[in-house]
Design a protein around this nucleic acid. Structure first.
Lengths: 254, 254
DNA sequence: CAGAGCACGTGAGAAC
DNA sequence: GTTCTCACGTGCTCTG
C-alpha cells in the first residue's frame, strides 16, 4: 500500500556541484588504520573465504592543488557516480522483483527490504519442503496405484496372450486376479457366478482398465466349511476365459 | 571460491575522526533541486505507489558554529553511523542467506549480489512451476485411483446414516451405488446374487473403503430382453442392507 | 590500466 | 519527539 521504494529522489543533486574540489576530510581519515576484530563476519556464508583485505598504504592519487589534470579526474567521478546510481536502481528493481514473487502472507506488515529478503529465504525453504513432500506423495501414489499391475502381478500378465487367471489362497479364501483382453467378450457376471457356485462369497471385486486390458481382482472367502480346491477353480475360470461367451451358460448348469 | 563478501573492512575509520566539523560540501549540494524524469522507476513492483517524495526546503538543523550543543549532535551522528553499519551488516548476512539457498547451477559463475538476487527470483519461479506441476500430477493420480469414491458419488452418501442404496439407469442396464457402514455385516455376495437373480449381468464392481465406510459401485447390464424395474431392485437391495445378514437367504429363495 | 562491485558515512523522509 | 529505512556520492579493492 504505502511502499515507497526504488524511486528517484526529487532532491537529486545537480552534476555541476560535483565539480567542486574534494574536501580534505577523507584524505585525513584514510591515514588512520582501524581494525574491527571481525566478530561476526557473516558466518552464514559458506562461500566467502575470510581472508582479510589488506589496506594499500596511502595510494597515490592525483591531487588538484596543481592544476595539472583535474578535469578527467572529475569526469571519472561523474561517470562513477552515474554508474553507481544505475547499479542502485538495478538493485531496487531486483528488490521489487524478489518481493513480487512472495505470497501475501509472507510480506504482510513487512515494510523493509531486510524483512522482504528474510521472508524470501523463508519462502524458498517452504517451497523446497513442499516439493519434497509432493515428490514423496507422488512416488507413494505411483507405487500404490499400480502395485497390482506392475509389482504384485507377474510381468508375463502385462503383454501376454489373450487372458490369464491367477488364484492365490489368502486369509480365509482365495484371491482371484484375471487379466482379459478388452475385445474379448468375457463377462464378469459369469466369473462371479462361478465363484459363488463354488460356495465362496465375494468380499471385494475391483475391475480396472490398464493399457487396453481389463483386470479383475476378486477377493473371496469361504462361507460354509466346504473345502475349496484352487486348481479346480483355476481350471473352470480358465476355461471360462478361453471359451466364447456363450459357454458359461453350460458351466452354470454343471 | 573467491567470494569476498560481507566482511569488515580493515581500513575502517576511527571514531575519533568523526568528531571533526562537518564539511560544507553537503550543505552546498542539498540546495540544488534536480529531478530525474523517472523513466523506469520499478515497473516490476505492483505494490509501490509511485508518489514522488517532496523535498523539505532547507530543514533547520542545529549548526555547531555556536558552541551551544555540538556534543549530542555528534553523539547522534555516531549512533546513526553505528546503526547504519549494523544494518549494512544485516543486509550482507541476508544476501549470504539468500545465496546459500540457491542450488549450484544458479550461481555458477555469478559473483555479484545483483546476479544472486536475479537468480533467486528465477529459482523461486522455477520452484513454483515445479510445485504446480507436481500438484497437478498428484491430483491426476488421486483422481484415477479413487475416481468413483470421491468425485462421482453424491455428497449425501458421504456422511449419511447406516446405509444407502442408489440405483441409476445407465446405458443398457443400471448402476448401483451402495454405501454401508464397515461394522454392518453386509456381504457383497448377497448383493451380487440379488442382481444376478434379476437377470442382470455385472460388468464392473468396485469396492472401496472411504472414511470408515464401504462403497460398492456395481455397473450391470441387461442380458435378456427382460424389463428391469429399478424401484423394485432398489427396494430389494435396501431391504437387504437394512436387515441382518441372515435375511438375505430368504431373499434368495423368493 | 579500466571497469565493476562493495562498504562506508550521511542527509532526508517515513513510521512509530 | 525518536527510530528506522533508504538513496546518495565516494573511496577502496579486485578482476580481467
Amino acid at each position: 500500500m504505502d511502499y515507497v521504494n526504488s524511486m528517484i529522489r526529487s532532491d537529486q543533486m545537480a552534476d555541476e556541484f560535483e565539480l567542486f574540489p574534494i574536501p580534505c576530510r577523507h584524505t585525513i581519515q584514510q591515514d588512520e588504520l582501524f581494525l574491527i576484530p571481525s566478530e561476526d563476519a557473516n558466518d552464514l556464508s559458506n562461500w566467502g573465504d575470510n581472508r582479510q583485505r589488506k589496506r594499500k598504504a596511502a595510494r597515490a592519487f592525483l591531487v588538484n592543488d596543481v592544476d595539472g589534470k583535474p578535469i578527467d579526474n572529475k569526469k571519472k567521478k561523474i561517470t562513477h557516480r552515474d554508474i553507481e546510481r544505475q547499479r542502485r536502481q538495478e538493485m531496487a528493481t531486483l528488490y521489487g522483483a524478489l518481493r513480487s514473487q512472495l505470497p501475501f502472507e509472507y510480506l504482510k506488515g513487512k515494510r523493509s527490504i531486510s524483512d522482504h529478503m528474510h521472508e524470501a529465504v523463508n519462502y524458498i525453504k517452504h517451497l523446497q519442503k513442499k516439493i519434497l513432500k509432493l515428490s514423496g506423495r507422488r512416488d507413494e501414489l505411483k507405487r500404490s496405484s499400480n502395485s497390482y499391475a506392475s509389482s504384485s502381478v507377474p510381468e508375463s500378465l502385462q503383454d501376454s496372450s489373450e487372458h490369464s487367471v491367477k488364484i492365490r489362497p489368502c486369509l480365509a479364501g482365495v484371491e482371484v486376479v484375471m487379466s482379459t483382453c478388452l475385445r474379448q467378450g468375457l463377462n464378469l457376471s459369469s466369473v462371479l457366478e462361478v465363484i459363488l457356485a463354488e460356495g465362496l462369497s465375494v468380499v471385494t471385486c475391483i475391475s480396472t482398465k490398464v493399457n487396453e486390458r481389463l483386470m479383475h481382482t476378486i477377493v473371496s472367502e469361504v462361507n460354509d466349511g466346504r473345502n475349496i480346491e484352487p486348481s479346480e477353480l483355476q481350471q473352470k475360470l480358465t476355461m471360462l476365459a478361453t471359451s466364447s461367451s456363450e459357454l458359461h451358460l453350460g458351466m452354470l448348469a454343471k
